[in-house]
Computed example of a mutant assay.
Amino acid sequence: MKRRGLALLLLALAQPALAERISIPFAPPINRDFVYRIEQYRPVAGKVSLFSATRALRFERTGDGYILVATLRAIDSDAPAAGVEPYRAALGPLVGIEMRFRLDGRGRIVALDDLDAVWVRVRAGVDAMLASFAPDSDRYRAAQKVQTLFAGLSPNGRLALLAGELQPLFLFAGSQVEDGAGRGLRTMAGSPLGRPMPVEGALTVAGKGADALDMEEKLAGEGVQVAIRYHLSRATGLVESQQRSLAVGAQALTEKRSLTLAP
């Protein structure tokens, strides 16, 4: 009997400890103005170029969820014309348009107020760009591709496109993350440096504090390497900063995102 008890004890000690699950809230600060800035550095025509976008954000409470008021304030790039025109054609029509996204209590974007009216303004911006460009120019061809893309989107596709750059803020909101060995991941990566390829790896907690978590994601696939570091508020559930590096063969991209209170 003693031997059996000892064997059970040794077996229990040999088992890996269950990973701690850390609950992440979703409690964004209400009626405060934020600046959300994205800077991306990637190769264009043989040199590394900067692409940046700055948005004004504000959260409002409504019922069981929230409204995120988001306005793209500015875009910029030092890339050569051939590289920058698709960027300006895609984002230029969005500058200055206030959008009111509806989020549920877990931080999921579920709707956009007046989606049809917003989309009319976006399409009008693309049409205006086309009318101002010479038909044989790179600008015209870039805007024409964006116009074709926009024309084929369903309502859900429109919402996904308009909300796409905001989604990383809420990656962990209203969920749990695993400490210790972390959680295995599988996804697609490669764009905009190449064709998306399957990658896999793990998401781990790299640092814990009373107010914040540092999360680290490392993924790899055939010719593709991805590393992402997140700084996450344990009070709000928002990703306050994010750094990503993507390597596809010999090409590399780095990206920085930051959420700060407006001055």
Rank of each mutant, 00 (worst) to 15 (best):
R55G: 02
A143T: 01
S132N: 13
D64L: 06
F133C: 11
V120R: 10
A142V: 07
A111Y: 15
S132L: 13
D127C: 00
V118Y: 03
R88V: 06
R73Y: 05
A53L: 15
V120N: 08
G105T: 10
R121T: 03
K47P: 09
A12V: 14
E85S: 11
A45T: 01
P16R: 04
I22E: 11
P80G: 03
T54D: 04
R55S: 12
R73M: 15
D64V: 03
Y41S: 15
G105A: 07
A111G: 13
A90I: 09
L13A: 15
Q144C: 00
L94N: 00
D116G: 10
K145T: 06
A79E: 14
I30A: 09
D113C: 08
R121C: 03
G105Q: 06
V44H: 02
A81Q: 12
G125M: 01
R141S: 10
R73E: 15
R139S: 11
G107E: 09
D127Q: 13
R55C: 14
I30C: 04
M99H: 00
E98G: 12
L103T: 06
A56C: 12
G107T: 08
A14S: 13
P80Q: 08
V48W: 03
R21M: 04
P29R: 00
S132V: 03
E85Q: 05
R32G: 03
D136E: 11
V110N: 03
P29I: 01
D113T: 11
D127E: 11
W119R: 06
R139Q: 06
R100L: 15
D114M: 08
